[in-house]
Design a protein around this nucleic acid. Sequence first.
DNA 1: CCCGGCATCATCCGATCGGATGATGCCGGG
DNA 2: CCCGGCATCATCCGATCGGATGATGCCGGG
Lengths: 210, 210
Amino acid sequence: MTETPVTLVIADDHPVVRHGLHGIFASARGFTVLGEAADGVEAVELAERFDPDVVLMDLRMPGGGGVEAIRELSRRGLRCKVLVLTTYDTDSDTLPAIEAGATGYLLKDAPREDLFTAVRAAAEGRTVLSPAIASRLVSRVRGPGNTALSGRERDVLRLVAKGTPNREIAAVLFISEATVKSHLTHIYGKLGVKDRAAAVAVAYDRGILG
Amino acid sequence: MTETPVTLVIADDHPVVRHGLHGIFASARGFTVLGEAADGVEAVELAERFDPDVVLMDLRMPGGGGVEAIRELSRRGLRCKVLVLTTYDTDSDTLPAIEAGATGYLLKDAPREDLFTAVRAAAEGRTVLSPAIASRLVSRVRGPGNTALSGRERDVLRLVAKGTPNREIAAVLFISEATVKSHLTHIYGKLGVKDRAAAVAVAYDRGILG
DNA sequence: CCCGGCATCATCCGATCGGATGATGCCGGG
DNA sequence: CCCGGCATCATCCGATCGGATGATGCCGGG
């Protein structure tokens, strides 16, 4: 076993979290923290400058959100792996982040040992997912109400959530009321639901709205 | 000015956050961290044992949530002030925590200096609120859609969010359909909304549902 | 070239909703 | 003791929804 430490860049807009992560990894054997970034843009800069093995990336940051930063990293062809930091399993940005190229997820409330394991795994290119996230991915693939809504369907649903009646939705979107109803029928089918109120609820649960 | 440091107990289920806060306060002038707790019950124990000036308390913790712990602290007549740690300004538990006796709020992503200021202020018994929280309190007091929903109204709204028609809601709750409609009318008024779909949306936005 | 998904539209109609109006009983604070 | 909030109920009715059915045009993958 080589003793080469895993090199890290930490990107989080919370000073407390940055400090906490830095301390935990700095005091552990086998890790070297190369830098801390407070937003996505800075994270990309540091990743380019220091060429770390792993970037720990918070998703919600002002001035350059995590998802765009992840895209930018892979666009620049950097070799670093990105581990996304999430506060809750139910974070609605997790799936987009995977699509953008994240290697895995890290729950911020994970115990120390899990953090170490996850970072080491990510450094080796292995995908790291919490059970909850993994099962969400699976349920996204199969099961009822899986299909993603189309752009137009999301337009309609957003207006529905504001209490807009079908006729006004039609006016706003410059389509006929019949088309609005048609979209709604499709939305109900895709979300596995019977009326607009339930559709809004499911959309919130899945992070499609709010 | 006395040089007596402000004594602290930190209660958070996230090891990372605990570590970060501990480090930040330990390395600053004028603070002494007496202990760390991983849940509400432990927080109460430590507060009783160490008699700190301030308890930094996360709201969402397994095994004894923060709000109950705050209530328990004031019930036991401990002199310590409680500063609630929140991740987002929009945390729906913030108001209950104030009612339970919290002296103020601390956003976890606040800069170091704000943390210090907030803790010192709390130690002196001054209320510490972030602007966002303060404005929420204000808007809770006046403006449309302020009043909290009654228990029965929440029952109805929960069923509405599942797509239950009024007649079935009536059956489930053992009341007449007229009463269901009456509750709904009140819900619409309180949430400042015109139909069930929008009511569900507002309820999600405010953390009443989901 | 065919098929499926998307977006569009139309008609018909029973079901459900939401507003208006009015009423009763209980309870707790002032 | 009065009043407001909550919970309950009733009737009436126009407005809106949602399901059924059928149709067209476009586009992209196989």
